[in-house]
């Protein structure tokens, strides 16, 4: 296999590449935050006139809440009642599986092609 000579990248090109990578990374991580799509699906359940008993707290738990700075049930109600919503659709689960498996499939396929070129150039054609 003929030896591959990579082109020399200009300084401007190098800077552009780094900016592209940064924009993609910050975008992927921040766009879900900005759109309100990221973060936990944990939401507090409103409780009218909460008491320690209605929140399911026994005396030992109440003592700990008090030590932690929660003087009454109302102040702790939001923390105690918040729950994750683990309901999901089959479609969203399938989407996740397709995205992850597809990602690894693409990567392994392209990597294999690139790896064969590397080995051919390093060790010569068989």
């Amino acid at each position: 296999m003929a030896r591959y000579i990579p082109p020399v990248q200009s300084k401007v090109g190098q800077i552009v590449d780094v900016i592209v990578l940064l924009v993609l990374a910050v975008g992927a991580l921040y766009i879900p935050l900005w759109m309100g799509l990221a973060g936990s699906s944990k939401v507090p359940v409103p409780v009218d006139n909460p008491t320690w008993e209605s929140l399911g707290q026994n005396p030992a738990m109440v003592e700990k809440w008090n030590q932690l700075g929660y003087a009454d049930a109302a102040s702790a109600a939001e923390v105690i009642s918040a729950r994750f919503d683990y309901s999901f659709s089959l479609g969203s689960l399938v989407l996740m599986i397709v995205v992850i498996v597809g990602y690894y499939a693409i990567m392994l396929r392209f990597s294999e092609k690139e790896f064969r070129d590397v080995i051919s150039e390093k060790f010569g054609e068989r």
């Binding site: 993609l24 992927a28 766009i31 879900p32 597809g102 990567m107």
Partner: peptide, 19 residues
């Protein structure tokens, strides 16, 4: 996926694009 599914898909999508 349970609770943070959007972030999971967003992050993997990022890796697909940069790949």
């Amino acid at each position: 996926f349970l609770g943070y599914g959007t972030q999971l898909v967003a992050m993997v999508s990022f890796y697909v694009i940069v790949s």
